[in-house]
Every structure is written in structure tokens, then in C-alpha cells.
Design a protein around this nucleic acid. Sequence first.
DNA 1: CGATTGTA
DNA 2: TACAATCGG
Length: 332
Amino acid sequence: MGVDLKDIIAKNEIELAKLNGKAISVDALNALYQFLAIIRQRDGELLKDSTGRTTSHLSGLFYRTINLLELGIRPVYIYDGRPPQEKIDTLRQRQEIKDSAKKKAIRAKVEGREKDYVKFSQQVLHFSDEMLKESKELLRLMGVPFIDAPSEAEAQASHMCSMDPRVYAVASQDYDSLLFGAPVLVRNVTITGRRKMPGKNVYREVVPESIVLAEALAALGIGREGLVEIGLLIGTDYNEGIKGIGPKSALEIVKADRFDEYGIEERLKDLFLKPDVSDNFSFSFKLPDEDALYSFLCDEREFSRLRVERAMDRLKKGIEGVTRQETLDQWF
DNA sequence: CGATTGTA
DNA sequence: TACAATCGG
């Protein structure tokens, strides 16, 4: 959804093991949206408990977080606060797209067009306050920290990465954190594996990658402000960008110092360069609240007891490991 | 997505 | 054991 910089930013594949012992600030909504989009039944429906409450996001958050902890990676989830005024138009447009996709999905379902139903229903990703609240509750019971950002999660995550030596990188699929000044962005932070493409006999590799801001800027021959200008030219969550200008020509414009010719309001830059963030953040990992976690997942949400039992062992081991690392950090 | 089960 | 198929909630 954010700034599309993939065509001009070089990606370096990394071993997930390289993140061992490091904390990463994770854009929580970014992760949860992906779970909601991807964790589906074959008919396109989300996972639900018997009362119809969605559980796809909880399943994804639970199992993925355990995998990160087992690798010695310490995820700190960052939640969005109040969006900047400039983003409200974008959010309203997204809502309109969702409303229209919902109608198309219902129609496809009624007419029995299975593939269209899957396609359109994936575009109808609505997060209720309840779903956000229960994802935080799950993290709390697991002993994994989360932080409520004053405004944009990516801004707060980037700020923490800049300020706290424990936080090695921001984890997100979007490139916005680079504009917010995150020293390192990591994408595809998940278990590496082959995944079969739907229908076809083709496999796509999911490989974690890291982007070091300083290296990316050096390769482009610009500074961070220049990167923000590129974003504003091609479009961000705060503005539409200039029609017909993609990343490549935007880079040329910025390098030729012709950004001012495009009449983009200067104050939009400040949303990235002086974002609304909090300096008073702290986080720590705790041992899981096992009984409450069983109760939440198995009794309330009908997760299989056996599955959760198996996962619980891995969670405890993982949390013990990262908790040791947390105490080790006190020495630095 | 990640976990589990099925198959050779 | 290795990988494809399909559950899970």
C-alpha cells in the first residue's frame, strides 16, 4: 500500500539466522493484513470459530511469532495510532474500493464463480477494533511486547530502530520506513520455503531480504530527503503523486534538483522527516501466561488443544531464549 | 501462512 | 524420508 520503490531499491537476500539475537520492530497491521489476506480455506473463507468470529489473524500471529522466537529474533509489534489528516483521503478511497469489492464478492458467490469470489473476498480486509484488541491480548499472553504508536506505526517503528541499539531493523512489506529513516528494513521475515502457486505447477521462493538505508541512498546518489521527494512524486499514503512519473523518472527529477517544479506541498515532506513519534518507548519479553493462553485459544477460539500444546513447548523455549538475550542487553 | 496428514 | 495435498477454526 505504501511507496512503491521496488524498482529502484536493490534488495539483498539474507539468512534469517543473521537476525539471531536482534530485536525487530514489526508493523503490526501490515503483518495482520497479510495473515487475513492469505490464511484462507480453499473456498476463500477465513478461518472462524463456531460463533463466526474470524481467527485467521490470530493463527498467523501465533505461529509466525513462535517461529521468530525460535530463531532468537525478538519481534516488537507496533500498532497504528491516529492517522495524520493527510492520510484520511487515502483511507476513505481504500474503503470505497473495499465496498465495491465486497459487492463483487457477494455477486461472484451467488453466481458460483469460485475464483472471482476468492479474488474479491481477499480485497475485503476489514479490521475491527475487536480484532486489533484480541491480537494485542494474544501477544500479551504470549509474553511478546507491543507498542501503540502516537500516529503512524511505520514512523514509530523506524524511530525505535534509529534510537534503540537493540532494534536492528523494521519489519514490513512496505518501503515507507526508509522514508521515515529506518536504518534497516527487512522484508519477507518468515520461514523460507517453497509455496505452490494456485492452480499452476510453479513454485515461488519466499526469501527474506534486507535493505540498508545508507547503502540504498549511496547507490541512488541521493540523501534521505531526496528519497522522500521521490516518494511524493510517485505517490504515498499522503498524496497521489504525479501522473506518468514512476520511480525511475522521479529519481532523475530529484537528482536534477527539479522537484520544486511539480508543485508538491512542502509540508508533506515533514510527515516523513518530522513524524509524530514517541521517545518514551520500552519493551521486554516475559514468560507466557500458559493457562490464560490455553483458555484464550482453545476454549474461546476453538484452536485444537493438541496443536496449541505442541506450539506452547516451542513458545516457552523461544521466549526463554530471547528473555536471556533481553537481560544480556542490559550490559550494553 | 504454517501445521499436519497422505503418498510413494 | 521427501514432498504433495489439505487441514486448521
